[in-house]
Amino acid sequence: MIQAIAFYLFATMVIASGVLTIMSRNPVHSVLWLILAFFNAAGLMVLLGAEFIAMLLVVVYVGAVAVLFLFVVMMLDVDMAELRAGFIKNFPLGIAIALVLLAELVLGIGALGAGPLELGTASGANAPNLANSNIENIGALLYSKYIFVFEAAGLILLVAMIGAIVLTHRDLKTTRGHQNITKQVRRNPKEATQMKQPTVGEGVEL
């Protein structure tokens, strides 16, 4: 009962916030609705027993990606009127893509009949031990069977990082704002100050 209530709650919220994402007039509202959709999708994952994926969804998408997204949308002055003009122009293309996605959905539902997916080798010989929690199963698979793909994915992230640095890093010629903390900490009063006792009217030589 409680599961059913929770499922319908989350499912309705996902769909409603998905609709509102594309319907809102304000782009910031759109992003916020999108975040709500992510969050409720995470709820659905928990109901499926995939708590690890659910948490990752929140940590990665809601906690990091969407924050940056929100950040950018807030900084940009998005003119909705202009976007709407583009909407009319690109409407046929949008419909075409929507039709493709619809076809995909129909096919996807049809695929339910193709039988369950095998998680092990092609023959299913190495299927994981489902007795463990899914966090352990995912870890065991990632670091054994899929080690090659997993590590190569790490390389992709490294390349993305190199790329971002190569394209944006500039050697600053000025030293403004640069701070050598060790140097600052090492400074002591003896080196930094001078005791002078000038007589009246003589002044201080700097």
């Binding site: 995909e104 096919l107 996807g108 193709a114 039988g115 997916l117 080798t121 092609a122």
Partner: peptide, 25 residues
């Protein structure tokens, strides 16, 4: 789609799954 309709991501598996024929998906 290929994964969904053949149930595997390996080329050998996809090949084996289609010996009988190609589904629409």
């Amino acid at each position: 789609l290929t994964y969904g309709f053949t149930g595997t991501t390996s080329f050998a598996g996809i090949r084996a799954a289609q010996e009988a024929g190609l589904s629409t998906g």
